[in-house]
């Protein structure tokens, strides 16, 4: 039995909560007004050639939905998928109540002596990415904005809290068994870390060590990460 498709013209209220790089993200409800949901809609990109645009949008919507379902099935913390409309470029998914790791980091680091308080969260970030990679899923766009911390009992993440780290935004993800892809995934996260949170650069060490411990292939991927770092263009010869 399949659920009836939501009528795009229905009166379900939608609130735009963010304009990401490729998608508009709305807060809405699904089927019943009491079930909060997140609607991720990829509008047509006028700058792209229509053929290329259609190819990319369809590919990304389907692959994002498939990866979410696959990850969810393996117990990895990702939002549940409710409904997919690939022709229209939309996915309805579970509403995660919480804030992004980026917001949490910014808030905590702004307070004096905040650095000591985020260690536990960094460990959970490392473990979450480790579980994803163990399942041979590569995220493709790991940033601190694409990692959420779920509220616990309606309370925001504070010092060393226990909020679950949830991975979101799998639009550039893929299934891959290669260490190379996983290492590039970590490299992208590392770079996002150092450019977004220049003051928190050394915290990334905690993410990596937790990652290394979290699954069997972790150490190998970390070694590969060394190679990937060396390969970046115009690397300084000093370090």
């Amino acid at each position: 039995m399949t659920a009836p498709p939501p009528d795009p013209s229905d009166a379900t209220p939608k609130t735009l909560i963010s304009q990401g790089a490729e998608a508009l993200v709305y807060r809405t409800t699904f089927l019943v007004p009491t079930l909060p949901a997140l609607l991720k809609h990829r509008p047509r990109k006028t700058y792209r050639h229509p053929t290329l645009d259609a190819r990319l949008t369809k590919h990304r919507v389907l692959s994002e939905a498939r990866l979410l379902v696959r990850a969810r099935g393996l117990g990895i913390p990702v939002p549940a998928v409710y409904f997919v409309d690939e022709a229209n470029g939309s996915i309805f998914m579970e509403w995660i109540d919480g804030s992004s790791v980026r917001q949490v980091l910014d808030a905590i680091l702004a307070s004096p002596g905040g650095e000591g308080k985020v260690d536990a969260m960094m460990v959970r970030v490392g473990e979450a990415v480790g579980r994803l990679h163990k399942a041979d899923i590569v995220h493709g766009d790991l940033t601190t904005s694409n990692l959420m911390v779920r509220k616990v009992g309606g309370v925001e993440e504070q010092e060393g809290g226990a909020g679950e780290v949830v991975l979101i935004d799998f639009g550039l993800g893929q299934v891959s068994t290669q260490e190379e892809d996983k290492a590039v995934d970590l490299y992208v996260l590392e770079r996002a870390f150092s450019s977004t949170h220049p003051k928190a650069e050394k915290l990334f060490e905690d993410v990596l060590s937790a990652y290394g411990r979290s699954w069997k292939g972790g150490k190998t991927v970390l070694r590969r990460l060394q190679d990937v770092r060396m390969r970046g263009r115009k690397r300084s010869m000093l370090g």
Binding site: S18, Q19, G20, A21, E22, K45, Y47, R48, H49, L52, D141, T143, S145, A192, T196
Partner: peptide, 14 residues
């Protein structure tokens, strides 16, 4: 298209 996409992603990010 790739260049515009990564630029847009950076704009959304910052």
């Amino acid at each position: 298209a790739m260049l515009v996409e990564i630029t847009e992603r950076a704009m959304a990010h910052v």
